[in-house]
Design a protein around this nucleic acid. Structure first.
Lengths: 172, 172
DNA sequence: TGCAACTGATTGCAAAATGCAATCGGATTG
DNA sequence: CAATCCGATTGCATTTTGCAATCAGTTGCA
C-alpha cells in the first residue's frame, strides 16, 4: 500500500487510486462486462491492455483494497478476481462518467448503449446493479425477487440488439 | 485535438480527457478554488504541479474544449482561463468523486469539508453552483436571487471555519 | 529612470510509466 | 504426448512525468 499522498483532498486521493489510463477500464470490464479472470481481462477489453500492465494494475488494485483474488476450484492455475464493496460503490460514478461522455465526446453507438441504459435507469437501477454485484462478488444474499432479469443481462441484451441491428442495416 | 481514440466507449473517452494525474486537479482548483490565472494554478494547489506540466495541461484542456483563454484587460501579459459548459457539467462527477473518497480514502478534515458540503447539498446545490460558474465563466445571467450567498463562498467559509477551529484546539 | 517583482511560459535532463513482443513453467485437454 | 491455456515475467524502446533553472516582456514603485 502506497502511504505517501500528494494531499488529503478526496478528489486527489480518488485520482491516486484510478487516475491512470487503465485502472478504471479494468473495473469497467469487471463491473459491466462480468470479467473475472486474467485472460478475460487481457483479451476482452477493446482498448487492448498489455499483460504486464494488467498484472501491475491487478496487484495495485488489490493492494488498494478494490479487488480480491481467489483460487478457481475448477482449475489449479486459474485465479478469480472479485470486486470489493469499495469498488462496487463506484457504480454511480461510472454511470455519471458514462453520461457525461455520451454528451460531450464522440462515443460509438454500440459502446454507449450500456451507459444510456444506466442513465435512464437512474439511481434505482444502480442500486439494483450494486446489489447484484454484491451477490456475485461478495456472496451477499440478493434482495431482488427471483425471476427478475439481472441488470448486466439487460445491458448485454441491449448491446446485442444494437450490434444485430447495425449488422442488418449494413447488409441491407 | 487528438483524434485517435482507443475506443468509442464513453468511460474510456472520458478517461482520455481527464484520466491522468493533473487534469482533474486543475479543474478542481478552477471550479472549487476559483483560480483563473497561471500563477494561481501553479502556486495555489497543494499538490504542487510543475510549470511545464501546467502549460501542457492548460493547452490540452483548451484543445479538448474544456477551457478557453482570454486576455486580462488589467495586465497585458495576464491570461484568464475560463471553464466551458463541458467542464462545468463535471460538477456532479466531482461531487460523487469527493463523496466516494471521503468514505474510502484517508482524507484530511480540512480538505474534505468542501466535499462534505457538496454531498449534503445534493443535486440542488450542484445546480446552483453550476449556475454560479456559468455566470462567472460564461457571462450567463444568474438565476439566483441577489443577496444569496454564493456556493463557493459557502465552501470557503466552511473551510476557514475548520482551519480556525483546528488552530484553536492546537493552541489550547 | 532604474530595478525588483511578477507574467505565462520554455528548456534541459533524469526518472518513471507505458507499450509491445517474446517467453516462462506449470496445468489441462485431447 | 503434443497442443493449448494459465497467470504472469522479461527485455527494450518510447513516452510521460518531475524538477530546477531560465526566459523575455510587463508592471509597480522609488
Amino acid at each position: 500500500m502506497k502511504t505517501e499522498h500528494r494531499s488529503g483532498c478526496p478528489i486527489n486521493l480518488s485520482l491516486e487510486v484510478f487516475g491512470d489510463r487503465w485502472s478504471l477500464i479494468l473495473l469497467r470490464d469487471m463491473i459491466f462486462g462480468g470479467r473475472r479472470h486474467f485472460r478475460e481481462l487481457l483479451n476482452g477489453s477493446i482498448e487492448g491492455i498489455a499483460s504486464n500492465i494488467l498484472t501491475d494494475r491487478l496487484k495495485r488494485l488489490m493492494e488498494l483494497g478494490m479487488l480480491t483474488k481467489a483460487d478457481d476450484p475448477s482449475h489449479k492455475q486459474k485465479a478469480i478476481y472479485s470486486l470489493t464493496e469499495m469498488a462496487i460503490t463506484l457504480v454511480p460514478i461510472m454511470a455519471h462518467l458514462g453520461a457525461w461522455g455520451r454528451v460531450w465526446l464522440p462515443v460509438s453507438e454500440e459502446l454507449s448503449i450500456r451507459a444510456e441504459l444506466m442513465e435512464r435507469g437512474g439511481p434505482e437501477l444502480w442500486e439494483q446493479f450494486m446489489d447484484e454485484l454484491r451477490h456475485e462478488h461478495l456472496g451477499a444474499p440478493s434482495k431482488t425477487p427471483p425471476g427478475t432479469p439481472g441488470v448486466r443481462q439487460q445491458l448485454q441484451a441491449a448491446y446485442q440488439a444494437v450490434v444485430a441491428r447495425k449488422a442488418e442495416s449494413a447488409t441491407a
